[in-house]
C-alpha cells in the first residue's frame, strides 16, 4: 500500500542538488521518474497503445486496408476451401502483415488496431468514471465520518459482495434491455455505453475504500487542523489540503485499474456478452481464435501478444509512478 507522501519532500537527502534549488513535488517526481528506465520504456509502450487506438483510422489509411472488408471472400486464392488462409502462418504476407482471419478473410492488423480502439475506449471511460466516483465517495466518507461514513461503508460492502465477473455477465443484458426493446438491434454506441456503465458500477469501490482510509488519517494531521482553525471551508480543506496528498494513490490506482478493465471488457466480449460483430473488438478476437485454433493458431497470436505487452507495460508503469511519487516505498 502506498502511504501519503509528505506535503513537500524538497529536502530529501539523495535527490537534493548541491546548490539548493526549490523544486515542486511534481518536478521531483518527474526527475525521479525519468531516471527509472523500466518506467520510461513502459510509458512509451503505453503511449504507443493509445496512439494506435486514437490513430486506428490513420493506420488503416496508410496501410490501405480496413477491418470490415472480407478480402478472403472477395478475392480467390487467399483462403482455401475450408476457409483457412492458403499461405502458411495464418496468411502472413507482405500484403497482410498479421495475416488473415479464417472464414471471413478480414485483415488481422486493422482488426486488432480497431479492436484495441474499442476496448481501450471502453476501459478508459470506465476508469475515468470509477476514479471520479471513487474519489467523491472515498473523500466524502472519510471527511464527513460518522453516519455518512457508516452508510457509504455498508454500501461499498454490499457492492463488493457481488461476484464481480458473474454480475458483469448477468447485468449487461439487463442494461441493454433498459435501453432498447429486445426485438430491435442494439446500436453499437449503446452496447459500448452499457459496458462502460456495468464496469463502472462494480469498479469504483476499491479506490473509494482506499481513499477513505487515507483521508481518515490525514484528517487528524496538524496541517488540516491548522486550516480548520484558520476558518477554511470544508471545500477548501478538501481541495487544497487533502487532495494534493491523495494524488499518489489516485494516480497509481487508476494506472492499475485501466488494464484490469481492458481485460474485463475483453473477457465479456470473449464470452459473447460484450461488443458484437461487425464492430472490431480485442476480446472477440480471442473468441474467434478459440474457434479456429485447431487449424490456425497464428490468428490468436497477435491479439494475445499485444495484450500481454499492454498489461505488462501498464503494471510496470504503475509501479514506477508509485516509486517516483513516493520514494520511501520500495518494491
Amino acid at each position: 500500500m502506498t502511504s501519503p507522501s509528505p506535503a513537500a519532500p524538497a529536502t530529501e537527502p539523495g535527490t537534493a542538488p548541491a546548490e539548493l534549488i526549490g523544486r515542486s513535488p511534481g518536478q521531483l517526481m518527474r526527475r525521479r521518474f525519468r531516471r527509472d528506465r523500466a518506467g520510461v520504456v513502459s510509458a512509451f509502450v503505453v503511449v504507443f497503445f493509445f496512439l494506435v487506438a486514437v490513430g486506428a483510422p490513420l493506420i488503416s489509411m496508410v496501410y490501405g486496408k480496413d477491418p470490415t472488408t472480407t478480402y478472403g471472400l472477395n478475392e480467390t486464392g487467399l483462403l482455401n476451401q475450408f476457409g483457412y488462409p492458403v499461405q502458411p502462418n495464418g496468411g502472413i504476407s507482405g500484403r497482410f502483415w498479421f495475416g488473415l482471419e479464417p472464414t471471413l478473410g478480414r485483415d488481422v492488423l486493422t482488426q486488432l488496431a480497431y479492436g484495441i480502439r474499442t476496448s481501450l475506449l471502453i476501459a478508459a471511460a470506465a476508469t475515468a468514471l470509477c476514479v471520479v466516483t471513487g474519489v467523491l465517495v472515498g473523500v466524502t466518507a472519510g471527511y464527513l465520518g460518522g453516519r455518512t461514513d457508516y452508510f457509504l461503508g455498508r454500501f461499498i460492502d454490499l457492492l463488493l459482495a457481488f461476484p464481480q465477473q458473474l454480475s458483469f455477465v448477468a447485468f449487461t443484458p439487463v442494461v441493454y434491455a433498459l435501453f432498447v426493446s429486445p426485438e430491435k438491434e442494439t446500436p453499437t454506441y449503446l452496447r459500448v455505453l452499457t459496458l462502460i456503465l456495468v464496469l463502472w458500477a462494480l469498479g469504483w469501490m476499491g479506490l473509494a475504500r482506499l481513499l477513505r482510509g487515507q483521508v481518515l488519517s490525514l484528517r487528524e494531521r496538524e496541517f488540516v487542523e491548522a486550516a480548520k482553525v484558520t476558518g477554511a471551508s470544508p471545500w477548501r480543506i478538501i481541495t487544497r489540503e487533502l487532495l494534493p496528498n491523495l494524488w499518489t494513490p489516485i494516480l497509481v490506482q487508476s494506472t492499475l485499474m485501466l488494464p484490469t478493465l481492458v481485460t474485463a471488457e475483453a473477457g465479456l466480449s470473449f464470452i459473447g456478452v460484450g461488443v458484437v460483430e461487425p464492430t472490431p473488438d480485442w476480446g472477440r478476437m480471442f473468441a474467434n481464435g478459440a474457434k479456429y485454433y485447431e487449424s490456425d493458431v497464428t490468428y490468436i497470436f497477435f491479439p494475445g501478444l499485444a495484450m500481454i505487452i499492454f498489461v505488462v507495460a501498464f503494471n510496470l508503469l504503475g509501479d514506477s509512478v508509485r516509486d517516483a511519487f513516493d520514494p520511501r516505498t520500495r518494491r
Binding site: G283, F286, A287, V297, G304, M307, I308
Partner: peptide, 8 residues
C-alpha cells in the same frame, strides 16, 4: 489472460 493462455 486465461482466454489467451488457455487456447495456446
Amino acid at each position: 489472460q486465461i482466454y489467451f493462455v488457455g487456447i495456446i
